[in-house]
Amino acid sequence: MEQEQQEKMEQKARQQGAGTLYLCATPIGNLEDMTYRAVRMLGEVPLIAAEDTRHTRQLLTHFDIHTKLTSYHEHNKFTKGPELIEWLLSGQDLICVSDAGLPGICDPGSHLAELAIKAGIRVSPLPGCNAGLSALICSGLDTTRFTFVGFLPKTAKKQQEVLSEVKNHRETLIFYEAPHHLKATLRQLAAMLGGTRRAAFGRELTKKFEEFRRGTLQDLLNFYEENEPRGEYVLIVEGFKGEAEPSQELPADPVELCKMLMEDGLSKKEAMREAAKKLGISRRDVYAALLTAEK
């Protein structure tokens, strides 16, 4: 049913002469990594939506491209996105670029693509560089199956939640990290995934000071505790190789589940919230069950 509805939307958009949204890869460092097609298309479309117009203008100037730029980023996507969809529906093509690599990977390009697809607008890739895959193929680790995690959340608690979800994944893990957060992130990785996990860290990919450093997570932690990280990093971490821990069967009764969670160290309020999430019920229902049990 959903497929039929989408096809009707696309047909309607074509009949109205809607333009095409192109998602264009840009270099992750070396400007020579631009493709011939991407350079040509950037010069032919009437408008480019850029994450940082100043950064993209430097790229366009290098290739003598004078296409009009408009700002589209994380902080204006909910207001600017619909405007760009109207532009596309009016029959004009649009290219969306991020600061580096493929738009839609850790940036708002994915939101624009989602809006376009819902409106029946054709979305087409202009392929090219991607930091995660570039680091993966040079890592020496398994490339047949992998999970892209990207940037971890900012708080330690949220980081631990994400790492708990992926720590038993058999496939190779891909993370992004900035230099000023690298050591803290590496400590979390070693603690949550195990210091003996093999890893390969790539920094400044395709640039003058490109470097890969390989070893266990503990080896890399020891190195960066003594050496200040420099440049943007892609972290490639080996998948889980041990025996998976047996899954713990959770009580279906919210009172019992809350009791178990509190025994694990959660406060009553945290246990109620977690029990509601795990059982798929409201916190009000959990609270009511606890009140009844206390009578």
Rank of each mutant, 00 (worst) to 15 (best):
G194D: 05
F78A: 07
A49W: 02
F63P: 07
G109V: 05
D285E: 15
Q160E: 13
S139F: 09
K154W: 09
M260E: 05
S90N: 15
R40P: 03
P82Y: 02
A275H: 01
L88C: 05
I137M: 15
T70C: 15
Q92C: 13
A289P: 01
D64C: 12
W87L: 09
R187P: 00
F146K: 07
Q188I: 07
I121Q: 00
D93L: 04
P125G: 06
S139P: 11
G132A: 15
L189N: 03
L102F: 09
N168Q: 14
K12Q: 15
L279H: 04
K12W: 14
E210S: 11
C96I: 04
K295P: 01
R122F: 03
N222Y: 03
G150W: 04
T196M: 11
L221W: 02
L133D: 08
G194E: 04
C258W: 00
G29V: 06
E10N: 06
A178K: 06
L47T: 10
Q160L: 05
L186K: 05
T196R: 14
T185H: 11
E4R: 11
L59P: 01
K167N: 09
L89I: 09
Q188A: 14
A244I: 03
A116M: 01
I174A: 03
S134R: 04
T206L: 09
S110I: 06
T143L: 12
P27V: 14
R187C: 05
T67K: 10
C106I: 02
I137E: 13
I174E: 00
E171K: 12
F151A: 05
T147V: 14
L23C: 08
G19K: 01
A252E: 12
C258Q: 02
R197T: 05
M272F: 02
L257C: 01
L163M: 13
